[in-house]
C-alpha cells in the first residue's frame, strides 16, 4: 500500500510547475461507518481552479471521500473519519473548525436536485441569509441575480423569481441548486453525480456550466459516466474498493492508465 501511494503522489507532483496551486491536500484519510471500513488511506492533492473527477464502481468510496471534504459525514451516525485533510493548509477535521464555517466555503450539489420548498429567489438567498452576507435587500437582490447568472439560469427565471423552486424542470432545478451553492461564494464546489437524474440535454447544460465555473472555483465531481469525466475534468481519480487506485491528468488516465484495474474499468471490463 505505501508503494502505491507514493506512486500516486509522485505522479501528481509531476505537473507542479505549470498547474494551479494545490487546494485540497489529503493524507491517509480513512472513513468507517459503524466500524465498517469504507475508505482506506486515501492521499491526494487536488489543484485549485480546475475540475477533478472521481470515478469508480458503486461503493468504491468516492462519494464518501467527497463528503469528508465538507464534513457531511458528521450528519451520519456512526461515521468515523481519521487522517489529515487540509483545504488551503487548514485542517478540516480539526476540532476547532466549525463545520458551519467550513461548509460556507465548500459548497455541495447533490445527485437529485433538492430545491427547498421555497421560491426561486428564496432558494438562492438561503445561504446569504443564514450567513448574513447581504447588508440590504439590494445587496441580496444583487447576489441572487449574479448567482443565477453564473449558473446560467437568469434568463429562464428572471421574470418568475417568486415561483416555487420545485416548479422548475429537473435540469433547471439542478442549476438552481448550483446557483444556491455559488451564492455564498465558496472556494470549493463538490458535486455528487450532479447529472445522474437528468436527461442528455440538461446534462450538456450542466457540463457547460461546470466548464465555465472552473475559472473561479475548485470543482470536484463524482460521476458514473466516464464520458462525462473525460469531457469536463482536467484530472481524474479512480477509486476501487475504498482505495484510491490512480490519479492523474484525465487524458493520461483514459489513454494510458498505469494500473490494470483502471484499465479494466475504463474499458468496461468491470463496474
Amino acid at each position: 500500500m505505501p508503494d502505491n501511494q507514493s506512486h500516486i503522489l509522485d505522479q501528481n507532483a509531476g505537473f507542479g510547475e505549470t498547474e494551479p496551486p494545490i487546494k485540497v491536500a489529503a493524507r491517509d484519510v480513512c472513513v468507517a461507518y459503524d466500524g465498517k471500513q469504507a475508505l482506506n488511506h486515501v492521499s491526494i492533492d487536488i489543484p485549485d481552479r480546475s475540475v477533478t473527477a472521481f470515478i469508480g464502481p458503486s461503493g468504491c468510496g468516492k462519494s464518501t471521500f467527497l463528503r469528508c471534504l465538507n464534513r457531511m459525514n458528521d450528519t451520519i451516525e456512526g461515521a468515523r473519519v481519521t487522517g489529515s485533510l487540509k483545504i488551503d493548509g487548514a485542517e478540516v477535521n480539526d476540532k476547532s473548525i466549525d463545520p458551519v464555517v467550513l461548509r460556507a466555503s465548500v459548497g455541495m450539489v447533490f445527485q437529485k436536485p433538492n430545491p427547498f420548498p421555497k421560491s426561486i429567489y428564496d432558494n438562492v438567498a438561503y445561504g446569504p441569509r443564514i450567513h448574513g452576507l447581504a447588508l440590504s435587500r439590494n445587496d441580496l437582490d444583487g447576489i441572487v441575480e449574479s448567482s443565477l447568472k453564473k449558473a446560467g439560469l437568469w434568463e429562464e427565471v428572471a421574470d418568475r423569481l417568486n415561483d416555487p423552486g420545485t416548479s422548475l424542470s429537473g435540469g433547471q432545478q439542478q442549476r438552481l441548486v448550483i446557483a444556491r451553492a455559488i451564492a455564498i461564494n465558496p472556494e470549493v464546489i463538490l458535486m455528487d453525480e450532479p447529472c445522474s437524474a437528468l436527461d442528455p440535454i440538461a446534462t450538456a447544460k450542466i457540463e457547460e456550466l461546470i466548464d465555465e465555473l472552473r475559472e473561479n472555483y475548485c470543482i470536484i465531481i463524482v460521476t458514473h459516466s466516464m464520458q462525462q469525466a473525460a469531457r469536463v475534468s482536467q484530472r481524474t481519480a479512480f477509486f476501487h474498493m475504498g482505495t484510491l487506485v490512480e490519479f492523474g491528468r484525465t487524458e493520461d488516465i483514459f489513454t494510458n492508465p498505469r494500473d490494470p484495474r483502471t484499465q479494466d474499468y475504463i474499458t468496461g471490463r468491470f463496474g
Binding site: 465538507n70 457531511m72 450528519t75 463545520p99 458551519v100 464555517v101 467550513l102 461548509r103 460556507a104 459548497g107 455541495m108 447533490f110 445527485q111 437529485k112 433538492n114 427547498f116 420548498p117 438561503y126 445561504g127 443564514i130 450567513h131 441548486v177 444556491r180 451553492a181 455564498i184
Partner: peptide
Amino acid sequence: PQTLRDGSYAMGATRSE
C-alpha cells in the same frame, strides 16, 4: 426527504436553521 436536509447542511446551516 433527507436530501433537503443535506442540502441545507451543505449550505452551512445549523440544525435549528
